[in-house]
Simulated assay, not measured.
Amino acid sequence: MKIAETVTFGGGGLDRAEDLRRHPDQLAALSSVTLPLWRGKPLVNAARDGLAYVDSALFAGMGIPVLIGRQGDGVILARDVSALEVSGTEEGLGAFLDPSEQTHPDLPEGTAFAELRGLMTRLTPLDAEIAATAKGVLEWHRTHGFCANCGAPTEAGKAGWMRGCADCGRMHFPRTDPVVIMLITHGNSVLLGRSPAWPEGFFSCLAGFMEPGETIEAAVRREVWEETGVRVGPVRYLSSQPWPFPASLMLGAHGEAVTTDIQIDPEEIAEAIWVSREEMMEVMAGDHPRLLPARKGAIAHFLLENWLADRLD
């Protein structure tokens, strides 16, 4: 897909400065700014269309400084400041799409911590990649404080890109879980599904985690069959999207259905339907009486939008 990297969180061009992770003396000699995150929410500017950075000395006693990448002659770090006593709106705090914002008197005027899902389509590709990287690796640190091999506490190393176990010597690195997300078509129609936890009327592309020993193509066919009973023939890769909610890599694929009868697994999915191209245009425009479009910024919206525009090549 020629426009694959125009997906949200794709194609930012971040210089991740991997060489500096192995040379702490060189890293320490460079100037730096820090992107603080509070409960996974990055600090954003007053216009809410870009990230906001602070002096790296601020909040230096909190969390683990993680090298995100180079910026000019210096570097960008990220730090978890969830222990910070913040003020701000609390309604919706922790919700699936959290509209609340939090701030602190030491932060630059007008800035606030805000939910990345609500900001992602307003950020530049580079800012989006920086935010996704920071959110993903800091969440990994939060949930992987102990060795999976022996259970002993681990300590951060390599500028925040490794955790080492002093007891057994095992090194652990940030993980990403691969997920296939499928644009399944049959003629002029596309197959959509709705999770039991989603609002009524909200439909999206089918998706599921890949399993060990499985190709992308096999995972697409298996997940569609398990959830809807539809058999899929040819499958081709389209685009990928880092999805730091909490740590997935969405692998977008196009599959051609060879059957159309739907028999859902109610433990996997609440409902599945075939939607014609003409009806899907109404959905994406927000004019459909029953169906709601996939969330802007998510790869499902990207795939459906480009299917309608005949831009999958």
Rank of each mutant, 00 (worst) to 15 (best):
M1A: 15
I3K: 07
V7E: 11
V7A: 15
F9I: 05
F9T: 09
G10A: 14
G11I: 07
L14M: 03
D15P: 03
R16F: 06
R22E: 13
H23M: 04
P24S: 10
A28V: 07
A28P: 04
S31A: 13
V33N: 00
T34E: 10
R39F: 02
K41S: 15
P42S: 05
L43W: 08
V44F: 11
V44W: 07
A46D: 07
L51H: 06
D55G: 04
D55M: 05
L58P: 00
A60E: 08
M62W: 03
G63H: 10
P65T: 12
L67V: 06
G69M: 01
V75D: 01
I76W: 12
D80F: 09
S87H: 12
A95C: 06
F96T: 14
S100W: 00
P108T: 08
G110M: 04
T111C: 12
A114R: 15
E115G: 06
T121N: 04
R122F: 14
T124P: 06
T124D: 08
K135I: 11
V137N: 01
W140I: 03
H141S: 01
R142A: 15
R142L: 11
C147H: 07
N149P: 00
T154S: 09
E155K: 14
A156N: 05
K158F: 09
M162L: 04
R163Q: 01
D167L: 14
R170Q: 06
M171P: 00
P178K: 12
V180I: 08
T185E: 03
T185Y: 03
H186I: 00
N188G: 08
N188F: 01
V190F: 02
L191M: 05
G193S: 10
A197Q: 10
G208T: 14
G208F: 13
G208Q: 13
E211P: 01
E217Q: 14
R221T: 07
E223W: 10
E226F: 06
V232A: 04
P234E: 14
S239Y: 03
S240Q: 12
Q241F: 08
P242C: 04
P244V: 04
F245D: 03
A247K: 11
A247F: 11
A247Q: 13
L251Y: 08
G252K: 05
G252P: 06
E256A: 02
A257S: 04
E267R: 15
E268R: 15
E268Y: 08
E268L: 15
A270G: 14
V275Q: 03
E278Q: 09
M281P: 00
E282R: 09
H288W: 03
L303K: 03
L304R: 01
W307Y: 09
A309W: 00
D310Y: 01
L312M: 09
